[in-house]
Design a protein around this nucleic acid. Structure first.
Length: 323
DNA sequence: CCGAAGTCCCGCCAGC
DNA sequence: CTGCTGGCGGGACTTC
């Protein structure tokens, strides 16, 4: 179980990305039903560490605190030509070797790459740096079109905000959707932007909240248990199905059916965690129709079964009842 | 787990 | 010529 989280701070670390990690893992949310982590920040030479913006962060822990961490987080940092201090690389390598989570935000991926833990793996970074990452490290399968990528226990995320998505993804895997939702709600970020197909979500960011799709997606969420077809939705949005699918993808970065499926899984996860409803009932309420179909999608996207998922995460329900 | 029937969705392309 | 639309085909995926 994910408990001890250590965020590395090195000379040139970007304050905002560092802040993202602190916000997700460093704040005790147990009062509002969320998780609390054993959170530490660490640096190679304790004391003031200059950030990418010039001002220093004063870090007290050296890297020894990272030895038994369940998660090592590497925020963005200035990408120089010089190499990263070997002591940080050793921490990253050791974490990957013992199967602990390793999370990079933005250009933090370069630290992981230099440590060698991304060799032969899929990974991503900020779109401005994807070319550079792929050129410098040809063995990495760089995907420029995703918010974040999970490959085994290594998670790399793209721009700053996607670091939140990636961090919440890890929380969701380890502590369940409800725990991740508590954090998302408190941070006032949309809980929907988590991993799509198995490991990733497409990148197009919904910058302009084109009201048409906000309306349609809201309606879809309220009618998840109904049999929703693309033709139906297109008609509701007053478009041909072809145009609907095309615009949906352009605005939300995923196809209508894939988005719908993702939302149904999230709904099912929540029902499994927070209710006692039987599998058939959960499947019906989430819009899968039957438990067999729900199981199929759980296996594909979450690599687990609904029953195993409930066993892993319904403990949260007991805690609530007890308190 | 398989295979048949049904959906989806994306490139292609003509039409406005 | 550019830009968006939407019908079509077939390969991928879903459902049963």
């Amino acid at each position: 179980v994910l408990k001890k989280v250590v965020c590395l701070v090195m000379p040139g670390t970007a304050p905002f990305e560092f802040g993202v990690v602190c916000e997700v893992f460093g704040v005790d949310r147990s009062a509002t039903g969320g998780p609390s982590f054993d959170f530490h920040v660490a640096t190679a030479d304790p004391g003031p560490v200059p950030t990418s913006l010039g001002f220093p962060l004063t870090i007290e822990n050296d890297l020894s605190v990272a030895a038994d961490a369940d998660l090592i987080a590497v925020p963005a940092h200035l990408i120089g030509t010089e190499t990263v201090d070997e002591r940080y690389l050793a921490v990253v390598r050791a974490a990957a070797a013992r199967g602990a989570w390793v999370l990079s935000v933005c250009s933090g991926a370069f630290v992981l790459a230099q440590a060698g833990v991304l060799d032969g793996r899929r990974a991503t970074t900020h779109w401005m740096y994807t070319d550079l990452l792929a050129r410098r490290y040809p063995t990495i399968d760089v995907d420029p079109d995703v918010l974040f990528v999970q490959d085994g226990s290594i998670v790399t995320s793209a721009g700053t905000a996607s670091g939140i998505d990636a961090a919440l993804h890890i929380v969701r895997v380890e502590h369940g959707a409800a725990a991740a939702n508590v954090i998302a709600r408190r941070m006032v970020v949309p809980p929907q932007r988590d991993g799509g197909q198995a490991q990733y979500i497409p990148t197009p960011i919904p910058e302009h909240r084109a009201d048409s799709f906000a309306e349609v997606t809201d309606w879809m969420l309220q009618n998840l248990d109904q049999d929703l077809t693309i033709d139906q939705l297109a008609r509701k949005a007053l478009m041909s199905s072809r145009t609907f699918a095309r615009r949906f993808r352009a605005d939300l970065g995923t196809t209508p059916a894939a988005w719908l499926n993702r939302q149904r899984i999230l709904r099912a996860q929540q029902l499994l965690e927070q209710t006692e409803a039987g599998l058939e009932e959960v499947a019906r309420l989430a819009g899968f129709g039957t438990a067999a179909v729900m199981r199929h999608h759980f296996l594909k996207v979450l690599q687990t079964t609904p029953t195993a998922y409930r066993r892993a995460f319904s403990c949260r329900l007991d805690e609530m009842v007890a308190s």
